[in-house]
């Protein structure tokens, strides 16, 4: 039995507080993506706290990074109820894309997995999934679900699947504006291994472009 979580997170959120969760399997670079997002927030002159949770595996398993962004102090450091969740793997989707039920219990995106759930998304929040990696049919109904072939886009743009985390950042920032595009580009290139700056810039741009296409459709 997991300990029931009392109440929903919405009532305990501070006004100026944006919560982002980036999830995937170990090795997909989603924790690094979280660090980059936090650094982008600093470039924007804002405050950010990045936390993470991961299993014992160096590769595989379900891992997540959480980033809380605010213009003021950030006290409770973890996401209470995410404004944005982006996930690149089925296991991470099931574990970290749940919603709170009326009794305050966390319900996973996959009902079978509810006992393992440890992260929710707020009503009306963004839920971005890699459509080729994630069966999102069990996603909460009250969120803005965005399905994009993020890993495939990475391979098509740079020839390398490992740039999927950078594409994911482009999609996330392009859609939600949690940080500025200039800041995320600066943060991405600063973290890119020497010689891969251009490749990562392209991956980021591919994410921005996909976000624009989604917005145009709506």
């Amino acid at each position: 039995m997991t300990t029931p979580r009392a109440g929903t997170g919405t009532t305990t959120k501070m006004a100026d507080r944006t919560e982002v969760r980036l999830a995937g399997e170990g090795g997909q670079g989603m924790i690094l993506a979280g660090i980059i997002l936090a650094e982008a927030a600093i470039h924007d002159g804002r405050n950010a706290v990045q936390t993470q949770s991961y299993g014992p595996e160096a590769r595989g398993g379900a891992s997540k990074a959480e980033v809380v962004i605010s213009s003021g102090e950030i006290d409770h450091p973890e996401v209470l109820e995410a404004d944005v969740v982006i996930t690149l793997s089925q296991a991470a989707f099931q574990k970290f894309s749940g919603s709170f039920g009326p009794d305050g219990r966390l319900i996973a995106a996959d009902k079978e997995e509810s006992e393992k759930a440890s992260g929710s998304i707020k009503p009306g929040g963004w839920l971005i999934v890699d459509e080729e990696k994630v069966d999102s049919s069990a996603a909460p109904k009250n969120v803005r679900l965005i399905r994009l072939p993020i890993t495939k886009m990475a391979v098509e743009t740079t020839g390398k699947g490992i740039t999927a985390n950078t594409v994911a950042l482009g999609v996330l920032v392009g859609l939600t504006d949690v940080v500025s595009r200039e800041a995320i580009e600066k943060a991405v290139t600063a973290r890119a291994p020497k010689g891969t700056e251009d490749m990562n810039r392209k991956a980021l741009q591919a994410g921005f472009d996909a976000a624009e296409r989604v917005k145009a459709k709506k």
């Binding site: 300990t3 979580r5 009392a6 997170g9 440890s118």
Partner: peptide
């Protein structure tokens, strides 16, 4: 008190 690896939430404190 929570001893299961999860952080105490602000809501739990408020209650």
């Amino acid at each position: 008190g929570l001893a299961n690896g999860e952080m105490v939430t602000p809501q739990m404190v408020l209650e």
